[in-house]
Design a protein around this nucleic acid. Structure first.
Lengths: 230, 230
DNA sequence: ATGTGTGAATCGGTTCACAGCC
DNA sequence: GGCTGTGAACCGATTCACACAT
């Protein structure tokens, strides 16, 4: 008999689970055995209704009048997120950013060990970064198969990002995290997330600009008083 | 008289403008003077209806039956995004990531020159990273005022991220980009964006996991277990 | 004929508000 | 009394579909 939750967890909820989880890890160290949606909401920077709704997608793991058992919730959440085992990753591109990512211990610590590094530049191949040898991008298929890597991180210049994505997919990668400032496409079956630093700054620039237009001109200073603590 | 669009641009649209703009920049180099919503959509990785709706918030800059004038649209978009002048930024925290960000030329190139670097570690103060001298975090108020910096980038460990945010705001910063794996809060009047690498990987891990649950049949996948960590 | 601009329909996500259980 | 779990209301964003301009 299969007991699998038939719940389809909304994307927006999935994106918040890691934040809840991190909050729970913090709390787990103190000897508080239970936590309320209100407290968890505050720690995660969202509101309590959202926490309850989100957690309800995982199952009814709370106790009315009491709250959620921290350790149990943490376990369920880790299980749901697939964090009960490590996910080795390969980083493609060892420029500034790739270098920093390779050296950043945070990945390995959090269950995503950097299992391989590749670059197209022969001058970089053979060097070691953060204790891992850089190999040639042509070797991707063997590397990925050998180390059973499913997640690829693109840290190359924009110009080659799409080509790298194609090669990662061809090599057997099924999840891609793209840091290159370029739009890339992957087959439907492949997960893709992007982190674009310049875009983030430009979004900030937009609101900065708005603020200045608003306060510089005609009569109403009108601060956009958004009281949403989301 | 100032010609000001009274339109309030939706947040989701704002987040896509930089991507459209980048696509337009690419196209502007070829000698194509106009572009259709369809073509722009393809380049930006969205659908054409969304492009048209998004652009309509900026104003009616297209011509029916023809498309959008690339240069004109580019100009309007840059203006709207506040990219007609530079926005100097300060980076706080010069660990691995801060270092990479400081060395990454992409920021300056895209209108966000790294005008200052600060760290709390006296051993780092006085050193130079990417041509900029590292100064002590205590000097933030003077640095920010002097260089007229409005955007602050947090690249510190999670533990001090909130404190740094508070100090940035106190120093006069009005936009914050947070790379620290921590939830931080800022006053309503301050813009905040976050980039959390571990969260991105965990989201990928979730979908990876789902895929495997789906394809592995009903039995437990039986994967090596590890102890829970952050 | 072609491709924009936009109301209307739809969808996904958030918030409300309260019934249900401890 | 306190706090979860969840339908219902609401809201923002996406998509549809077509009138309209060139």
């Amino acid at each position: 008999m299969v007991e699998r939750p038939p719940r389809r967890i909304p994307e927006a909820t999935v994106a918040r689970l890691p934040v809840y989880r991190r909050s729970l890890l913090e709390v787990a160290e103190e000897e508080t055995s239970t936590i309320s949606s209100e407290r968890l909401a505050e720690m995660a920077g969202v509101n309590a209704a959202k926490v309850r709704k989100d957690l309800s997608y995982l199952g009814s793991y709370g106790t009315r009048g009491v709250g959620y058992d921290v350790k149990y919730l943490l376990f369920q959440m880790s299980r749901e997120l697939g964090l009960t085992h490590d996910w080795p990753v390969v980083i493609v591109g060892l420029g500034n950013l790739g270098h920093a990512l390779a050296n950043y211990g945070g990945f390995g610590e959090r269950g995503f060990p950097v299992a391989a590094l590749v670059d197209a530049d022969p001058a970089k191949v053979g060097t070691r970064v953060g204790g891992t040898e850089v190999r040639h991008v042509d070797e991707l298929p063997e590397i990925v198969a050998e180390r059973r890597i499913l997640i690829g991180i693109i840290a190359t210049p924009a110009a080659v990002a799409q080509e790298v994505a194609d090669r990662l997919v061809a090599a057997g990668i099924t999840s891609v995290l793209n840091f290159a400032p370029a739009v890339i496409t992957v087959p439907d079956a492949i997960s893709l997330r992007k982190v674009d630093l310049a875009v983030e700054l430009q979004i900030l620039s937009f609101y900065q600009q708005q603020r200045q237009l608003g306060s510089a001109g005609d009569g109403e200073p009108s601060l956009p008083t958004r009281s949403v603590r989301d």
